Amino acid sequence: MNRRELAGFLRSRRERIGPAEVGLPIGPRRRTPGLRREEVAQLAFISTEYYTRLEQARAPRPSREVLAGLARALRLSDAERDHLYHLAGVPPSLPAGPSREVRQSILDLLHRLPQSAAIVISATYEVIAWNHLAAALLEDFSAVSRRDRNLMRRVFLEPHPRDQRLYSLSDVDAFARTSAQYLRATAARYPDDPEVAELVQELIAGSEEFAQLWASHDVCAKPALCKSLQHPMIGPITVNCDVLDIADRDQRLVIYTAPPGSPSEEALRLLSVVGTQRMDVPG
């Protein structure tokens, strides 16, 4: 526990919050910016004496409950909350399960990539956001249930011929290995989440291939940088695959692009125009 740094951090966060932001009257006698110590203590459900000692670097290590109350009272961001826990010498606790809420700035980014197909996947390989071109290239995710948007269920449990699994990806076996390894790491991060446990058990029971991969206990996965798939209307398309971590949400942004001037770039450009409409059905 770094008492001096913790004291300075608490004081700086307290002084930046105006009373009106937390529903308190401003009053005529405020000589210093921000909240008073007793107001923070009240909002955090702790005694004013104990909070004062924290700011004076004289208090014993606060409990998780106290830290959670302080983070709430001081309106800390996720990064500030983790910093608070580290200063107090308490490892930040992980959320109970993987987040499915996509940050608005990421949603905006998806739609600013009109020449790239992009999706956001959760820590359990559920597609939780996508743009127009991704729906045209892969499938219209809005037309399927949340359960069917899980790519691991699609690759391990759907009864397709091996060369037609998961959009007929050329590296579907590599994807299967990578996803199993990633899911094992996810299960370790969220040991108490029922949805993660249910997914693992469902895959083990329904897929001998997954059960064997799971039994290997491997967690080190190498991403594939290039993928080929067989689009039902356009034909073969080869794309570069870049994966960007969204660390604060434990999510990943997957972006598919085609080499400039290639036939695949022309194919993506065509898909961006026709979207998800069926081109094999007479108009």
Rank of each mutant, 00 (worst) to 15 (best):
L6N: 10
R11M: 07
A20D: 15
A20R: 14
G23E: 06
P28R: 14
T32Y: 02
T32I: 04
P33M: 08
V40L: 08
A41P: 05
A41C: 07
Q42E: 14
Q42R: 13
Y50L: 03
Y51T: 08
Q56F: 06
P60F: 03
E65C: 00
G69M: 12
A71C: 04
L74W: 03
D78Y: 02
D78Q: 13
R81H: 11
L84I: 07
V90I: 14
L94G: 09
P95F: 10
P95V: 10
P98I: 07
S105R: 15
I106Y: 11
L107W: 02
D108M: 13
H111D: 15
P114F: 09
Q115G: 10
Q115P: 00
V120D: 06
T124K: 11
V127W: 08
W130Y: 08
H132L: 02
A135Y: 00
S145K: 05
S145M: 02
R153L: 14
P161N: 08
Y167W: 15
E198L: 11
E198C: 03
E208S: 14
E209G: 00
S216P: 00
K227L: 10
S228Q: 15
M233W: 11
M233F: 11
I234G: 01
T238I: 05
D242W: 00
D245M: 11
Q251G: 08
R252S: 14
T257A: 12
S262W: 02
L268K: 06
R269V: 04
M279A: 11
